[in-house]
Structure formats: C-alpha cells, structure tokens
Design a protein around this nucleic acid. Structure first.
Lengths: 102, 102
DNA sequence: CCATTACATCAGCGCGCGCTGATGTGACAG
DNA sequence: CTGTCACATCAGCGCGCGCTGATGTAATGG
C-alpha cells in the first residue's frame, strides 16, 4: 500500500454531525446560516465543526459579504475513495496468507 | 446519493491504533499475539479495539486452537470506497449551485 | 493432574472532545 | 453614526472513550 488512509481526515469525518454537514455540502454550497437551519445545531457548535473540517482540508470557505460559504473539496473525498479501494484490494489478496502461530 | 457513508464504520476507523491494525490486516491474517508484537500495545487494550472493529463489521474472527485470527472483510472497505466516490462525484457536480443568502 | 498461554471481560481512571454561553469583529441597513 | 446580523473565538462543563490492572475461561503442554 503506497499511501495509507489519512487518520486526520477520517477523524474529522468520525463525528455524526460533521458527516451530516458533508452530505449536505455534497448537494449544494451553503453558508453557516443554512447549515444551522438544516441541522438544528447552535451557531457556535457549527462554527467549531466547520473549523475542524476546514483544518482537515475537507472544506474550503468562500466569504461573500457577511456570509461565509462552505464548499467541499472533491479531491479529498476522491483520495479517500482510492485509499479504501486499495485497502480492499489488498485485503482481497490476503486469502490464506496467515502468519504462523508463534 | 443513495447510500451515505456509514457513521459507525467511520467511527470505528477513527482511532489511530485501529487504523494501524486495519493496515496490518490488509497484508496478512494475524492473531492477537502478532498484533501485540507489531503494535506494542497491551493485550487488553488490543482486545478492546478488536471488539470495536468486530462489532463494526470491519473484521471477522477465525478461532484456531487457542489462537484467534482476525481477517478483514474487503466488502466493507470496498463499500466505503464506493460511498466516498459517490460523495466526491456529487461534490464535483455542485459547481456554482449555491443556495441564496436568506 | 497442574502450569502456562491466548484471549475476553470488567471496573476504574484520566483526558480529550463536543456542546454551551459569553464576547469580539466585521459587514450591511437605516 | 447606531443597531443588527453573520460568524469566529474563548472559557468552562460534562460525558464518552481509550488505556490499564485484575480476573475469568478455555486450550495446550508437561
């Protein structure tokens, strides 16, 4: 396996609310106000989550007046997809390749 | 998006040690003793992590005498890969599809 | 038979993380 | 200018989770 799955990205996606946000952003670009409406979470809480997603490189921001729009970075998700595909392929090739009992 | 990313599976993979274990198991089938040697973690700790991976459906066990071998379930990883690929594809299609400011 | 090994489970501890309320800053409206 | 709105940041709280030591239970070896 050349590049393993990035732990930081996975960690950022491990929160249910953040995963919901990613799913929402996969349909349309939204600002914090929209996300507050959609998720029912507080603004402060949401802002914290967006910071995590931003620092993990999953999301990028686009300021628009006094609004901040968030959009997904598809390359990151595509990278995850490839890394898991590589893991799955490697796992399929394991077969009866088990290390002997010590 | 038909099937979104499974939060439980992602959560199970969000721990660095568990991710290491998955990477190890992608190469060869191992038992707990091997994993203790490879990771340096305590047996108790490892057993807890294996329980999490098992309950998430990522790993299946094969008892072999007094040893317990663990092997990955490639379908789960392949499923993750497809789900992230779908997310990435959807994210690419978003473009300038941004919801209007309220 | 008893000792050892492999593994699971449990109770307990400590820290990290998600949630919140309060506060600060910048952008627009009037 | 002042007030309001959108958003970020901070301090604090509480719970969950990862780690550990102790204990239980099979399976093997002598």
């Amino acid at each position: 396996m050349l590049t393993s799955v990035d732990p930081d990205v996975i960690r950022a996606l491990s929160d249910p609310l953040r995963l919901r946000i990613v799913n929402l952003l996969a349909r349309e670009t939204l600002c914090t106000t929209h996300l507050v409406e959609e998720t029912g979470a507080r603004q402060t809480n949401l802002s914290n989550h967006m910071k995590v997603l931003r620092e993990a490189g999953i999301v990028e921001t686009e300021p628009c007046g006094r609004y901040t729009y968030y959009r997904l970075r598809p390359e990151v998700l595509a990278g995850l997809s490839e890394q898991f595909a590589a893991l799955a392929a490697s796992a399929r090739g394991v077969g009866e390749n088990k290390r002997a009992c010590p």
